[in-house]
Design a protein around this nucleic acid. Sequence first.
RNA 1: GCGAGAGUGGCGGAACCAGGUAGACGCGCCGGACUUAGGAUCCGGUGCCCGAAAGGGCGUGGGGGUUCGAGUCCCCCCUCUCGCACCA
Length: 816
Amino acid sequence: MRGYDPSQVEPKWMARWEEEGLYRASEDPSDPRPRFYALDMFPYPSGDLHMGHAEAFSGGDAVARFTSMRGYNVLHPIGWDAFGLPAENAAIKRGTHPKEWTYANIEQQRRSFARMGMSFDWSRRFNTCDPEYYRWTQWLFLKLFERGLAYRKTAPANWCPNDQTVLANEQVVNGECERCGSAVVRKDLTQWFFKITDYAQRLLDDMDELVDWPERVITMQRNWIGRSEGAAVEFEIVEAGERVEVFTTRPDTLWGVTFFVFAPEHPLVPRLAEVGGTRDRLKVLLDRLQATPLTNREQAESRDGIDLGVHAVNPVNGEKVPCFVAPYVLMEYGTGAIMGVPAHDQRDFEFANEYGLEIRVVIKPEGTQGEEALAVTCHEGSGVMVNSGPFDGKRSPESISAVARWLEEQGKGRASVSYRLRDWLISRQRYWGAPIPIVHCEEHGEVAVPEEELPVLLPDDVDFRPGGDSPLARQETFVNVSCPRCGRPARRDTDTMDTFVDSSWYYFRYCSPLDERRAFDPEAVARWMPISQYTGGVEHAILHLLYSRFFTKVLHDMRLVPFTEPFPRLMNQGQVIFGGASMSKSKGNIVEPMPLVERWGADTLRLTMLFAGPFEDDIDWKLIAPDADRRPGVSSWLGRVHAVVFEASESEAVEPDALRRLAHRTVRGVTDDLERFRFNTAISKLMVLSNEMRSALEAGGGAREAAELLGLMLAPFAPFLAEELWREALGRPESVHAAAWPLFDPGLAREETVTLVVQVDGKVRDRIEVEVDASEDRCRELAMASGGLRRALADRPVARVIVRAPRLVNVVTSQG
RNA sequence: GCGAGAGUGGCGGAACCAGGUAGACGCGCCGGACUUAGGAUCCGGUGCCCGAAAGGGCGUGGGGGUUCGAGUCCCCCCUCUCGCACCA
């Protein structure tokens, strides 16, 4: 590498920027600049920064720098999402403490970010595992508890009998524990939940406010919430005298009910088996399910079940149908019980075939007699209602709402809505997390820890290895407390919170990170939020983004924040993969970003990421960087930019008009590209400009104006070189990152001539340079006289001439 | 199965929004220059086919359509990626 040496230049500016406090957001009320909150999803400190961070933060930083240069007061904070299982697992493996491992990684990542030249406001930085932070996570828990949005219930969970711990669904791979490989079983545990289902409808409705989210993320959230409209219908269980409600999206098929099914966990099931004399059969089924992990069971497509020996009465026709228990009915959705309509539901159809149940057609497909096709399949589509009492002859599915209204009039049911979304299970029987601030008193039950006693500190000296219950339960001094209400001996809750709780509100904290009296200052939040631009990976499309939206709505209801959506604008960067697959240790295909920074410089790494393709597309490192030893193309370009700008700054020669015009057009184009995060095309435009500057200098001209514009426009992408050029080559005293983004001169940016394309029957036959304001007549004249056209036309007669001045003339010879 | 998105040179990609020069910019490759050497730097070439050249033909996954004109719009099909996956 000759000439420009990033290993000398980059550390120099890194130190200067820190001295000058260049990237502090201003809280000065007299600061007239509009505010802009640029947020990147904060990192998890599982080691040094990886390629995904390099990609995401290169884009986020470009946005922050561009916006700042355009005159905004930019808040661009950083922190760490630092609680969680990986820290514990790593600590167990290495024999260190999770805290030690976590803080060491944070420090490593902090240094790497600084080395990459990220324009963070470091003064606002915090970690979610700091007591000063999780104190307020606990406070938020208490607020939800007060509002009835945090509650405990017993629910089945995935349990690894070897590791003696609960596993998240993601940690169960093919029914086995991802760590030890033993078969996972179900275990009923009492867990804390957040009642996100209360907000299901608002989470859907407020999607209108997500003005700039990727469509696929919206769709994923909508599907995840899974709103279904239909009807709730009551069936009576004859032998037990119980009434049971079902939810159905197809009340129009009610007359086709031939059986009734309960989920195995349905609370009524044990009693019904008692009444029906089928306890033993039920026990066999439940025992088998107990040995099956939840995730596996959900994937199983068996139509297993048992006959309960009791009957349900169909309210629309008074018929008695047999009741079953079958695992294909889920307790978590609807009411945990369904009506079986085998003629018009695939699963019910399969179940009926398994148990020889009647299949009764009530929707006749158009143009058929109905019955014959049903030997092999069911009919879920449209048709005419038959055997359906008052609705015979009506069309389905158009009559669904009419049936729902009729049910309501008859007192047999009502229109109803059901959601797929379930409440958020937030308790973890693990050590490295924020303790749940609750005390269990024999007399008073669940008692909130008084706010002034927060934080409930996570004790350091705990045997944190997993083993049955929560590790905190083994720490007597932690567990044994007195009840805040009555003072008698009580036990602290020993679960910790899911890390997604920590990350659901961190962006509020950045607005007033040092506040010791509150989670955040509502006035500061009102000033800075909602977030102007949020950047992060699509892997958070559901969990983090949905939870954060939920938290924001709760805070809104508490009148602490004036808005209901935290991130109206969201940008998803693509993943960095290798050879078509994600980078992972087990595949041994991890490429680390920091060694590349050491070798070629931070600017080169950033440009490599941003120039590789559209920001939202995946980058396959194997394809864009085939030879690790070779100098990357963008690095060579930076070297040429360095040389050409220094030469231009020293040249007294007159700058050619053509170059000046190109420079102004480039300002227009790059500005436009940056507004839409089209970093790759913006960079290509800068390359064209630098190439033309070189040509101008070779031809004996100057390039001073172009050099200044190039230096400014380079700042968001290659902040180090841009600074070197601005201060050292162009002799500016202030940082380029405090300079104003250039404006283009519209007169100069306008093209003077364009290429007029001459076509015959749509095929290009000639090209002519014409003035940009050439008239239709002039274009036609020039085109008709052109050599290429006459050659191609020969003697053929002209049928028509299409003129689109000043770009195109198409001569048509054949009759269309 | 349902939902979403994407198929353009040897490769990453551009031509967006608004139908009008397909392949910008870069990588790689080929040739040359400077060099003891280069993984350094600089210059030229590079979609495919025919042709010495001029020039011509073909070309955006496949097929059809609309149009003077289609990578772009419409219909059908194929392939790939991602998400959800017994949601009643």
